[in-house]
């Protein structure tokens, strides 16, 4: 298990390779479909959101307000990342992202951006909303809530030992490409 702690440096990221298990601690920002389209179309980051040396998490959490008016994340697993493929490479480049957390993997454009700018794709376990919500220690803030609605807003989260797996590293390797190739070959034998 490799511990990744905010701020996420380029050296930390370059040392990671496909197949590594990581535990992430520090600040991360959620961002999914609406946020990626917005940023890609030239939208400004709201004041307070800093993605430099940061991690964006493809997640639409369930967040409730407690009696004291504090936000509490009650379910927070990843959403399918491939929908952000048209945007992710640009977002990595423009905002100096060091990591993307999601599920299902991403394609060649994102892989190329990871290699060029020093970023990794971290696969968390899809559906594991409770295990992952337990790693969220605090909701620091929320942005674009009114515009995009709760699942699509940018949530600034403080996480501790958030488990994920490196499936696309900063050296051009992708577990998803590898598994697709192996499974295609296997299927050809069975048809």
């Amino acid at each position: 298990m490799i511990h990744l702690t905010y701020p996420f440096t380029k050296d930390q990221v370059l040392a990671l390779k496909v197949g590594d298990e990581v535990a992430i601690s520090g600040i991360i920002f959620t961002g999914r479909d609406a946020v990626h389209k917005y940023l890609h179309d030239g939208g400004e980051l709201p004041p307070g959101v800093n993605l430099k040396e940061g991690i964006i998490y493809h997640c639409g959490p369930v967040v409730l307000k407690d009696e004291q008016g504090n936000w509490k994340v009650t379910a927070a697993g990843p959403t399918t990342s491939i929908r952000e493929e048209p945007y992710q490479g640009d977002v990595i480049k423009k905002f100096n992202l060091r990591g993307v957390i999601g599920k299902g993997g991403m394609g060649d454009r994102t892989s190329a951006a990871c290699k060029e700018f020093g970023c990794v794709y971290l696969h968390s376990v899809g559906g594991a909303a409770q295990v992952l919500a337990e790693c969220v220690k605090k909701v620091r803030n929320v942005y674009l809530l009114e515009e995009f609605g709760s699942p699509e807003a940018i949530w600034e989260l403080e996480v501790e030992n958030f488990p994920a797996f490196v499936t696309m590293d900063a050296h051009g390797n992708s577990l998803h490409k590898e598994v697709l190739s192996i499974s295609s070959e296997q299927l050809a034998k069975h048809i």
Partner: peptide
């Protein structure tokens, strides 16, 4: 955990 906390298994 979801069963014990009576919270969604998956956020979606």
């Amino acid at each position: 955990l979801a069963k014990r906390k009576s919270q969604p298994i998956c956020q979606d």
